[in-house]
Design a protein around this nucleic acid. Structure first.
Lengths: 120, 120
DNA sequence: CTTGACCTTAAACCTAGGTTTAAAGCCTAT
DNA sequence: ATAGGCTTTAAACCTAGGTTTAAGGTCAAG
């Protein structure tokens, strides 16, 4: 499949695919006689997986560290669970931080509202 | 006060202060005869305010839009409450998104754990 | 009178994840 | 054979919020 076809199938841009290849996040494509990249149809699901992982808060660096393993032998369930657990902890930390931020903003609003009351 | 003094008092770097000045987030400093910046002591509290606002999730752009007003006449309580409320909504949205992300990661872990069980 | 600590500027560099552009080559239909 | 739509590359550009560096000026102490 040519880069435009695979891009359309996966719902990403061609520039993004070339960018991923340059960064080593996906394997270098085979080339046709004319130099055009020729990708296997399986890449579509990998590209979709990358999007999903990004949606879960994984960086490309983290994703790529899993991908490299995929070339060799697939990552084990236990390893995947470990990675996900680490990410889970940081998402939980983010929630705690965001809640605290929310609390502080609410307190500030309350304070200002009170001031407005007494000024009125 | 020279830039190093004000930086120390506010707990920020000198490069950051120059950066803020260049970006128009703080007013250009008066200059001594030798060309050194000469800042009023009040800038310390402004710099601390900027830090606080960043901690609440405001971008420098947002902060600067408030600061510009401060040159003219101080922002009103009602206006401040409006800005804070907008920010509050986005923090709440972030919390919702993060919780959803957490839920999805947990589901994935559960799925993998189940698979490991049946493989064992 | 020189050393060291401070100050000045512009411009380059950094992370992250790409997009955009320029200049060129290829392919298909007409 | 030529128009348009695809492809190639390297390199520059983008946001955000700064830091770092280079090359130089200033000031107080010893």
């Amino acid at each position: 499949m040519k880069i435009g076809e695979i891009a359309k199938a996966a719902g990403v841009t061609t520039s993004r695919i070339r960018f991923y290849e340059k960064r080593g996040i996906i394997a270098p494509a085979a080339r046709d006689a004319n130099g055009y990249r020729d990708y296997p149809v399986e890449l579509v699901s990998l590209l979709k997986f990358i999007e999903q992982a990004q949606g879960l808060g994984f960086t490309l660096k983290e994703i790529s560290s899993v991908e490299v393993r995929a070339d060799d032998h697939p990552i084990s369930c236990a390893e995947a669970i470990d990675l996900l657990t680490v990410k889970l902890r940081s998402v939980e930390a983010l929630i705690v931080e965001a809640k605290d931020r929310k609390r502080r903003i609410e307190a500030l609003i309350g304070e200002l509202a009170g001031r407005e009351q007494s000024a009125a």
